[in-house]
């Protein structure tokens, strides 16, 4: 499209050069000035702009407008289809994880990961249910898995990974504060009892 425009412009330029009015149409002295200035590339550009303006005026006629609409509609259709493919390629109907390509979009892959992590959590909790000596390890593992799940949802489903840094600050600050507050409450002895 852009290339066509350029070609058109050069064709038109030649026309312009050929159609420079006869000298007698100009006041005295101006014709010479014009002839001289034609060597100046800027003037050529200006002339080209003028020609383009003229074509635009021509395009305002009804048949031209109808034709234009048709072309634009076709273009839009093509573009939207192309865009769709581009979109899909970007989001991916496939997802690459650790070098393997899965035949599902990223969001679906994350969903499977979340499900698998949940199952892992439940199994660990059930297996270690009675092992009170391993309780600390169990708590650490489970908290870690839950954090990974939360991280996946926040970074991918909530798009925090690619979004504005301000959102990240707005979210992380209270999370850190909450963790510190909870750890503080856990570390001070609770008053009361039975």
């Amino acid at each position: 499209m852009a290339e066509e425009e350029k070609n058109l412009t050069q064709d038109e330029l030649q026309e312009v050069a050929e159609s420079v009015p006869a000298p007698d149409e100009y006041p005295e002295g101006q014709a010479e000035a014009l002839a001289e200035s034609l060597d100046d590339p800027n003037v050529v550009d200006q002339a080209a702009v003028e020609v383009l303006k003229a074509t635009e005026q021509g395009a305002d006629t009804v048949p031209m407008q109808a034709f234009d609409k048709g072309v634009t509609a076709a273009q839009n259709t093509i573009e939207s289809v192309m865009d769709h493919q581009g979109h899909n390629a970007h989001h991916g109907e496939t997802t690459t994880v650790f070098g393997r390509t899965l035949p599902v979009p990223l969001y679906t892959a994350v969903f499977f990961a979340l499900g698998a992590l949940t199952l892992t959590e439940v199994i660990i909790a059930e297996v270690l249910k009675e092992a009170s000596s391993l309780e600390t390890i169990k708590i650490i593992i489970l908290t870690g898995i839950a954090s990974v799940k939360a991280f996946l949802v926040v970074s991918i489903y909530m798009h925090l990974k690619d979004d504005s840094r301000a959102y990240l600050v707005a979210f992380l600050t209270p999370v850190i504060m909450a963790i510190v507050a909870i750890l503080f409450l856990l570390s001070v002895p609770a008053t009361g009892g039975y």
Binding site: T118, A125, A146
Partner: peptide, 10 residues
Amino acid sequence: VVLFTLIYLV
């Protein structure tokens, strides 16, 4: 996600 782990599993 947090409540589930904290309340039901831990």
